[in-house]
């Protein structure tokens, strides 16, 4: 990854987020099923993601990939019920207590990039400034490091104070990634991060994901099999569509 001349050092967080030893695996799911009233939308399925590895999740549209990811951080729409045993970073995402803290360690990045009103830097700081108590310069240093890690620094170094909505879609998606990385998360949950992008933007985002690989635990959901092959250590297949069979195939890739 190339960094610009003004690139700050890529790390030096102001304080450790988690003092406890990292639990392994990062995600453990047993017999997960999601219901809407009496209708089953997903599962049951089981899988686990080892700490520090990139797990790919494959399935065609309508197979409930997003639903699974959202259930991992307690972000299902009202009216959907979750059954089964879930453990994310050693915690149960179904219990309401401490959800914001869990989400700050296991960050979900959505399919379409959502930027907040405000500048590029405001966006990079957005989650950070709520979760981490530190001086403004320290926070800014960390946000800039995250922009480097997301491969966006070269493009935005001279326009940090410009409105984020002036960025291209691909840049915005990497900004979303940087916003997540700024929190120094243990786990990244990526929900089809390239499906709304054109080829060039996709390559840039893939490059950013590849840069993260090995440093953090990642769960990457995609319908693009070849992308998963390029980026992932392991693969889970959710099958063609929702079915009672819940055929979850798990295979070692490398």
């Amino acid at each position: 990854m190339s960094t610009g001349r003004r690139a700050p050092a890529p790390s030096a967080p102001p304080g450790p987020l988690v003092t406890a030893p990292r639990p392994a695996p990062a995600v453990e799911v047993h017999d997960l099923a999601v219901h809407c009233r009496t209708r089953r939308l997903v599962g049951p399925l089981s899988f686990s993601a080892e700490s520090g590895r990139t797990l790919g999740m494959h399935g065609s549209s309508g197979s409930g990939k997003s639903t699974v990811l959202r259930s991992l951080v307690g972000l299902l729409p009202d009216g959907l019920r979750v059954a089964g045993r879930l453990r994310v970073l050693g915690r149960d995402p179904c219990s309401r207590a401490g959800l914001p803290e869990l989400r700050a360690r296991a960050v979900l990045v959505g399919q379409t990039p959502v930027v907040f009103p405000g500048s590029v830097l405001d966006n990079a700081l957005f989650g950070l400034r709520h979760s981490v108590r530190a001086t403004r310069p320290a926070l800014q240093a960390r946000a800039e490091a995250a922009l480097v890690e997301a491969g966006l620094w070269d493009e935005v170094a001279d326009r940090l104070d410009q409105p984020a909505r002036t960025l291209s879609v691909g840049q915005r998606q990497r900004l979303c990634l940087a916003r997540a990385l700024a929190l120094d998360p243990l786990l990244l949950l990526l929900d089809e991060p390239t499906s709304a992008l054109d080829v060039a933007a996709r390559d840039a985002v893939e490059g950013a994901i590849a840069g993260v690989r090995g440093k953090r635990s990642v769960v990457l959901v995609s319908h693009d099999g070849r992308q998963l092959d390029r980026l992932c250590d392991e693969l889970v297949d959710l099958g063609a569509s929702t079915g009672p069979s819940g055929a979850v195939e798990r295979h070692q890739d490398r």
Partner: peptide
């Protein structure tokens, strides 16, 4: 709705 949800994915509580 995406704005609310995205803010939540970054670990913000309801007030934030």
């Amino acid at each position: 709705a995406g704005l609310r949800e995205t803010a939540a994915t970054l670990g913000l509580n309801r007030r934030e």
